[in-house]
Structure formats: C-alpha cells, structure tokens
Simulated assay, not measured.
Amino acid sequence: MTTMTSRIIHISIERDWREVYAFMADHERMPLWATGLSSGLTRDGDDWIAPGPLGNARVRFAADNEFGVVDHLVTLDNGAQINNALRVVPNGEGAEVMFVLLRQPEMSDSQFAEDAEWVERDLAALKSILETGSHKQGSGEEHGKQRQ
C-alpha cells in the first residue's frame, strides 16, 4: 500500500464553528474564498461544475452534516480524482478549519509547496471574510486566479 505525502493546513477563526460550517457548506459562497473556484460553481444534479484552466471539474460535496465535514471529491476532465478533506471543529468559542493537502502523483516538491501556500491564502481569506462580516456585502471578485 502506498500513501501520499500529506500536510494539514489549518487556521483559527473567531466565529462560532457552526456559523463557519454553515458558510463553508453553502457551495455557492465557496468562490468568495476558495480561489480555485473564483469563476463560480454551477449545480448539475448531485454534483457541481467548476470551470478552470484544465477544463471543467466535477465536484461532489459531502452531504450536510452536524460534524463540520465539508469534504469534496474533484473529478477532472481527464478522469483524475482528488479527494479534499476539509473540516471545521470547535476551538473554544471559535473554530478551527483544517484542510488535508495530499501530494498528488507526479507533483514536484515546488508544486506541492505552491499548492500549500495557495490553501493557506484561501483559508486566510475565509478567516478575513468571516471575522469582518464582509460575506454579507462583498462579491468576492478580488480573487482572479484559477486552481483546481
């Protein structure tokens, strides 16, 4: 059995964990902070379609739950699948958001480091949005790059 190198990237957010989960589980809001989805998601049955530089990605999210799980499976046009484990847990009166980044086959050290930096920026954007309340008025158009 072979396992991939992994890195857990996390951030503390000064908001009740249930509010953080509710925001993150609203898939139409993901493009506000997840810059790989900056052009938006379109519902297609149980899946969502995310256009990107590598073509359309099909995204299947975990069902709504009371455990803070926002996992999602991304299937690229070429059939490659990427499991993204994304969790929200209570941290005192706030929340801890954790993303498990798995180094994909054929990914170089520098690509893995760049992917980790990207996730860190996305989680920092999530924190900023939720702690300032800008999700109630902002459009999220400040994110211009595409990532899947």
Rank of each mutant, 00 (worst) to 15 (best):
R87N: 09
D115P: 04
M4T: 14
G55M: 07
I13N: 01
N84T: 06
E19A: 09
E142A: 13
N83P: 00
H10Y: 09
S38I: 02
G79P: 03
A34V: 11
G144V: 13
D46I: 00
N84E: 06
E131T: 10
M24V: 10
S12C: 07
S134I: 05
M24G: 05
N91Q: 12
Q148Y: 06
E141V: 05
N56D: 15
H10P: 03
L123V: 09
D16S: 12
F61T: 02
V59L: 14
L101D: 11
M107H: 09
A80S: 14
E19I: 03
R58F: 03
A25E: 05
S6M: 06
G94D: 15
G36R: 02
H27M: 07
D44W: 05
F23L: 07
S38T: 00
G55F: 09
N65G: 12
I9A: 02
E114D: 11
I82G: 02
D71P: 14
D122A: 14
D77R: 15
G79E: 15
E141P: 00
E120I: 01
E66H: 08
E28G: 13
G94R: 13
L32G: 05
Q104Y: 06
P31V: 10
T35E: 10
Y21M: 04
A25L: 06
R58L: 00
E131V: 11
T5Y: 08
F99L: 06
A125F: 00
E66T: 11
D16L: 01
L73S: 10
E131C: 05
W17L: 04
L130I: 01
R29T: 12
K145P: 02
P90Y: 04
I82Y: 14
L54M: 08
R58M: 07
S108A: 12
L76F: 14
F23T: 09
I49R: 11
D47V: 02
L86T: 07
E19Q: 13
A124R: 14
W33Q: 09
L37K: 06
D122C: 14
A50M: 03
V100F: 05
S39Q: 10
T42H: 07
S6L: 00
A62I: 02
L86D: 00
P31S: 12
R60Y: 05
L130F: 13
A125R: 05
Q148N: 04
A57Q: 02
M107R: 01
W17Y: 11
R7E: 10
D122R: 03
I11R: 02
S110V: 11
D115K: 07
R121Q: 02
Q81V: 06
N78D: 14
S108F: 10
G140L: 03
T3S: 12
S38H: 05
A25K: 05
Y21K: 01
R43C: 15
W118T: 14
I9Y: 05
G79T: 10
L32Q: 15
M1W: 04
D77T: 15
P90V: 02
E141M: 05
G52L: 08
V20R: 01
E114S: 00
W118S: 13
G92V: 15
N91W: 12
